[in-house]
Each structure stands twice: as structure tokens, then as C-alpha cells.
Amino acid sequence: MLIQSLIPLGLFLIMLSMGLGLTVNDFKELLNRPKAVFVILLVQLLFLPLLAIAISLAIDLSPSLGLGLVLIASCPGGITSNMLTRLAKGDTALSIGLTAITSLTSVFIIPLIMGAFARLIGGELESFELSFLNIILQISALTALPLVIGMVLRNKYPDVVSHLESKMVLITALFFILLVVLTWIDQWENIKSSVNVAGTAVALLLVLSNTAGFLSGKIARLQEQEITTMLIEVGIQNGAMAFMIAATILNNMSIAIPSALYSVFMIIIGMVIVVVRRPNVA
């Protein structure tokens, strides 16, 4: 299908665009906020996948939809989370650094979590065999590799990249919107038949993840800008990555349905966060 051919290209461009905006200093910046980094990564990398698994079991999602939900929760943030953090006047440097770290670690985390969920659920997923090496290599080629390429290009040609960066962000954002629209058209019957249960699961994931992010930030006594960043980093995952893994690596569009719904819902939630949090920070 055309959509399955375009998705890998779209993800590659998105991650390349993210890399063009990164420098080594963005990683060093994380060292200045050790508590915020630890708390956010703990919630994002551990709590979020466990929450998705709990939701899947609680509302009795089908194995494929459940796997799709867990896949979303296992993905890192993306360019969208960085843009929303900037709009909400959160800690943009923290957001960019965290997105970079989680994008690189997701290469290993995603196959581990998906494999664990497949073994937990069993049933039709008992025959769902994950080639960890294959998935790691494919995710690396479409996420980590373009991210590193973008960083190298920024380091070698800073003036050219500075001129192109904003255009790349716009192009990739429009391309991703096109992919979501095409998927909704292509999978409309499947989406329509599962929208109630899958939509409920996605909505629960978004609401509960943001609630957990806010409460964790308050309990950890993070600064208000850091809490805003945490809300967005925890609540806005890389829908394009989940989309790509489901549609191309796993070759199962049913698993991609939660991603298709999430890509729309996350923008709504993201803008709500921007409106609510922006007046509360300096």
C-alpha cells in the first residue's frame, strides 16, 4: 500500500529534522537538571508502558489494539512535544534533550516492552514472534541514524542548517499530517468499528499519563517550567514512530489504529496543556 511506503520516509524526515536542531550541548544541558531528568524519564520509560498494559487489560482490548496502545506508550517524545513545550513556555532545552535521549534508547526499549506484552497476553499473540535484532536494526535505521546524521550536518554546516531547519520542521509536520489523513481514509472501516474501545483506551492513556506527570512533578517539587515540560514529554509521544513500527515493521494496520487515533487526540490534549500552563509560568 502507498501509505506503508510513505510512513518510513516520513519518520526518517521527522527524525532528521529533529537532529538538525540538536547539538552536544543539548545533552550536556541535562546534567544541570538531574532531578527533573530522573523523574521524567522514570515516568516516561517505566510508568507509561505499565499504564498502557493496565488499561489494555482493564478494558479488555483485543491483542492487536492492546499491542498498539503499548507501542505508543513505549515510544519517545517527538518534535511536537518540543514545539508545544516552547508554546507553553516550559523548559525547552530540557524537552529537546529528553526527546533526544528517549529517541535513542527507544531502539532497545520498544522491542523489549512489546515482547513482554506479547508473552503476557498470549492468545493470538502467542505466534507473534519478535526478531529483536531485526526490529532494533530497522528502528535504528529510521530513528537513531537520521537523528545522528542531522546532528553531524548541524555541526559541519551550521549556517546552512540554521537556514533550513524551520523549513524542514514545517515540511515534516505537513507530511505527518498527510500520513495521518491517508491512514484514516485507508483504514476508515477498521477505525470506525473499533473507535469506541480504542478511542476510550487512547483517551485514558492521555488523561492518566498527564495526571501522573503533574502529580509526580509536584511530589518531586520540580520547578513550574519543568512540570510543564514533564506534562508534555510524558503526554505527547512520537505517534509517527508507533505508526511506522505497526504498519511497516509489524505489517499490521490493526496495531496502527491506536496510533492513528492518538495522533489526533494528542494535539487536542497538547493545546489544552499549552492554554492551561502558559499563564502559570514566567
Rank of each mutant, 00 (worst) to 15 (best):
A246M: 03
G123N: 11
L178H: 09
L130S: 03
A73I: 11
S5A: 13
V180P: 07
V107A: 01
I109F: 09
P76F: 11
A93P: 04
T80C: 11
M18F: 13
N238K: 04
G122Q: 04
A203S: 14
Q225W: 01
A256N: 02
A100L: 00
R277F: 10
L206V: 15
S74M: 09
A256D: 02
G66F: 09
L147M: 11
G270I: 00
G235R: 01
G150D: 06
A52L: 06
S209T: 13
S5F: 15
I101L: 03
S5K: 14
A260N: 05
G239K: 02
S64G: 07
F27Y: 07
T172Y: 04
W188T: 14
Q44I: 11
M1D: 06
P111S: 05
F27T: 00
L31G: 14
L11M: 05
S81V: 04
T229G: 14
I7S: 07
V39K: 01
P258R: 00
A173H: 12
L61S: 04
L65F: 15
A93R: 12
G97K: 00
L87I: 07
W184C: 15
V281Q: 03
R278F: 08
V161E: 11
A52F: 06
V197C: 10
P8A: 03
M15R: 02
E29K: 13
G90F: 02
T80I: 14
L46G: 12
L50R: 11
F47E: 08
V180Y: 04
L20H: 12
P8D: 04
A100I: 00
F132M: 10
I101V: 15
I268D: 00
L250D: 05
V152D: 13
L84V: 05
Q138L: 08
D91H: 06
V160T: 14
I139H: 00
I227Q: 09
T102P: 03
I232Q: 02
E233I: 02
K156F: 15
A118G: 08
M18C: 09
E233S: 07
P49M: 03
R86W: 08
G213W: 09
I255A: 00
L215E: 10
K192P: 13
V197K: 13
E126K: 09
T85F: 06
F27K: 00
F128R: 02
L51F: 06
R86T: 07
P76I: 12
V161P: 14
V202I: 14
S259T: 01
I3L: 15
S95N: 00
L30M: 02
P279W: 01
I245C: 09
S140H: 03
P146D: 05
K156I: 14
G78R: 03
I53V: 14
A116K: 08
V160D: 09
V107L: 06
A203P: 11
L208I: 15
L206P: 07
A246P: 04
G115D: 07
L84A: 02
L178R: 10
I7K: 05
T248A: 07
S263H: 00
D91R: 06
K35Y: 03
P158Q: 10
P63C: 03
N252P: 02
I3E: 06
